[in-house]
Amino acid sequence: MQIFPRLPAEWEPHAATWLAWPHNARDWPSKFAPIRWVYAEIVRHLAESEPVRILIRSQRQEQEVRGLLARAHADLNRVSFFHIPTNRVWTRDYCPAFVQDQNGNVAAVRAGFNGWAKYPDHELDAAVPEKISQALNLDITPMLFQGRPFILEGGAIDSNGKGTLLTTEECLLDQQTQVRNPGLTRADIETTLRQYLGISNVLWLGRGIAGDDTHGHVDDLCRFVNPRTVVLVQEDDPGDDNYEALRENRERLESARLEDGSRPELVPLPMPRPLFFENTRLPASYANFYIGNQVVIVPTFNDPQDRVALGILAELFPNRRVVGVHAVDLVWGFGTLHCLTHEQAAPITTSP
């Protein structure tokens, strides 16, 4: 039985996709210049089939972005700008969750945001949900546990829209490194996810991938592609830092059950060769794709596995265009396509 409010799956119809235009050069040391062109490419692909809503800091920035998007041949008729300042661009993690009630109406849920329990300058990002809900005239509900804010980033979870959710112990249960909710147990977290997002069944994976600045986000690791099928990145080199963690996560999923008691279908995705910034490994992963209304945009890394990953996802999304977006520069900011996008669910309308 479906619980409401309900967190829709990413492949369900969008009213729009939200992005924040890049402005913090410190997030891409020595690589900031090409990032805006990567963004223009993302907007161009998404605007072919849905509205794109962009958070910008000023009227001057809006004019600059309009000109750049025009040069990139993006459909500006489907792009709108919201003057909402941000610290960083990772809208996946701080935008509100857009949920549906039993009548198909959409409302916003605001989780707490503490800068991934790592970055102190996050106050602008934390204020974004309220500002978006005001701009859209949507009701917004704060996500609480026993009266205190419940910290949750969008990249930490992935939903099949039927009540099952993927997440990792490393991210949500850690009590030492990057602590989101001090003292909360697995049962406390599951209760909160049920109350605010309609989640009846949580599939707990272990660790995320090496180089993940967020300490275990699931969207670099494992994703639903339909209500019964998940893709899980797989590392074939036993000497790689990801090998054991990904093997263990596959074993967990092989014994997991969906909300109806059935086993999920597992499809392996390859991993690209390791990418580094100086001596720091970067979270390069094909699992960080984004599902738009008619397109799936997939990060690519100038790697032989790019073609393999695109082929696998093309078979899994036969009714959408699957396109690669160059992410070698983008991943220097410790995130790629799914991290910087956030879907706004469309309301469900019924014919009279």
Results as ranks from 00 to 15, higher is better:
Q2E: 10
Q2N: 06
F4R: 03
L7I: 06
E10G: 06
E12K: 09
E12Q: 15
E12I: 03
A15T: 12
W21H: 07
H23T: 15
A25Q: 14
D27G: 10
K31T: 10
F32A: 15
F32D: 10
E41M: 10
H45D: 13
H45K: 13
A47C: 15
R66W: 06
L69G: 11
L69I: 13
A70T: 15
L76K: 11
L76E: 13
S80K: 04
V89M: 13
P96H: 06
Q102P: 00
A117D: 04
P120R: 12
P120D: 12
D125L: 04
V128Y: 02
Q134F: 03
N137Q: 14
L138P: 09
I140Y: 01
I140K: 02
M143V: 08
G147H: 06
R148G: 02
L152C: 00
E153G: 12
N160V: 02
G163K: 02
L166H: 01
L166D: 06
T168W: 01
Q175S: 06
Q176I: 00
Q178W: 00
V179R: 02
P182L: 07
D188G: 07
L193S: 03
L193T: 03
Q195K: 14
Y196W: 09
L197Y: 07
L197V: 09
S200G: 14
S200Q: 14
N201V: 01
L205N: 01
D212P: 12
D213C: 02
H217W: 04
D220Q: 13
V231R: 03
E235L: 01
E235I: 01
D236F: 00
P238E: 08
G239S: 08
G239L: 11
D241M: 03
D241A: 15
N242P: 09
E248Y: 07
N249Q: 01
R250S: 03
A256L: 07
G261S: 05
G261D: 03
L266I: 15
F276P: 04
Y286E: 09
Y290A: 05
V295D: 11
P299N: 11
F301T: 08
D303C: 12
D306T: 08
V308Q: 14
L310Y: 05
L310K: 08
A314I: 01
F317C: 10
V322N: 11
V322R: 09
V322Y: 08
V325E: 08
H326A: 15
G335M: 06
T336E: 10
T336V: 14
T336M: 07
H338Y: 04
E343W: 00
A345L: 07
